[in-house]
């Protein structure tokens, strides 16, 4: 871990202003940042501690949604009675992630910004275009069982590891930010994470100094909410495939469906076409397969992760069957 200066931010604007300085990182939970700093994957020269900013509240919004402060801990968000009652998919996704200790520390903003678990990204002696642009992607021809099958580029096949963000994608969340000049903006979560394309090192739409202040959730859409996480051990493991689904169905017919996927892509994955195919369709194998086809259109494996394509298909089928049952 390289030496850094440590500063505790007293106000949000001060934090954003301080962070304009190159080499600055905000630290909140620190569960991913310190992990990476110890391995010298992240080497900030300044840390701005935002833990004592007043960003730790969950508030009702006037439209019937929720506004979640950026430093609300994952465990507190998962346990909030409003989230449990109205946004079960989010609560379940949060509870599926990491361990209780990590969830007690990890924050809403930090979870959105967590970085990939690609083995080669984590190892500074290996090529990685995300960590060191131009050095190559060791995962492409390497061991890539946990890697992406969608939205990849020839420079990077890393996945986004978050569970929370997958549920938020299904919920059409918005990410609220404040930039160094004190200007606020709201970024739809669909746009917040970027495709790796030619610049895998740039992962989000955030500008230098721009700070995530909150995530807002619109009122919960109608229907059954499910978060299904498929992984190698029963707990404390990242998703091979996960599905966040909100499906409104009755009498064997689907009124609407929202589907987001984790473990498959460089960002929480959602395909409008798949949902369009399901809307108004009868809840049967043909419709489910059609949706899976749309989701997995263009999917390609890189060897060890080929199984993710049939696994995603089967998991989606199981989730849709469960969501439309009764």
């Amino acid at each position: 871990m390289k030496a850094f200066t440590y500063e505790r931010a007293e106000t949000i604007t001060r934090a954003a202003a301080a962070a304009v300085k190159p080499g600055t990182k905000f630290i909140a939970g620190g569960t991913n940042l310190l992990d990476l700093m110890k391995l010298q994957v992240e080497t900030p020269s300044q840390l701005v501690d935002i833990n004592r900013l007043p960003l730790d509240k969950i508030e009702d919004t006037s439209d019937g949604g929720l506004r979640i402060g950026a430093t609300v801990r994952n465990s507190d968000l998962a346990a909030d009675p409003r989230v449990r009652r109205r946004y079960g998919v989010l609560s379940r996704a949060l509870l599926s992630g990491a361990s209780a200790q990590l969830r007690n520390k990890a924050t809403t903003g930090g979870n959105l910004l967590q970085r990939t678990r690609c083995y080669y990204f984590y190892d500074v002696t290996k090529p990685c275009n995300k960590r060191e642009p131009g050095s190559g992607c060791a995962a492409l021809g390497g061991f890539n069982r946990i890697h992406a099958v969608l939205g990849t580029s020839e420079l990077c096949i890393a996945t986004h590891p978050s569970d929370m963000a997958v549920a938020m994608r299904a919920l059409d969340a918005n990410v609220e930010t404040l930039d160094a000049e004190g200007k606020a903006r709201s970024i739809p979560i669909a746009d917040f994470h970027r495709f790796p394309a030619r610049t895998p090192q740039i992962e989000t739409m955030l500008k230098p100094g721009e700070i995530v202040t909150a995530v807002t959730l619109p009122p919960p859409p109608p229907g059954t909410q499910i978060y299904r996480k498929v992984r190698d051990r029963a707990s404390y493991a990242f998703a091979l495939v996960s599905v966040a689904a909100i499906v409104d169905a009755a009498g064997g017919r689907i009124r609407s469906a929202r589907l987001a996927f984790g473990g498959l892509a460089s960002k929480p994955w959602r395909v409008a076409q798949a949902e369009e195919r399901l809307a108004g369709a009868s809840a049967d194998a043909e419709a489910f397969d059609g949706a899976a086809n749309a989701v997995l259109d263009g999917a390609r494996g890189y060897g060890h992760n080929d199984f993710k394509v049939p696994l995603a298909r089967r998991t989606l089928r199981a989730v849709l069957t469960e969501a439309t049952r009764a």
Partner: peptide
């Protein structure tokens, strides 16, 4: 609250 003390800096807990 239980946390992993390895993944947090002492200075953050003044």
């Amino acid at each position: 609250r239980r946390i992993n003390s390895c993944l947090t800096l002492a200075v953050m807990h003044d």
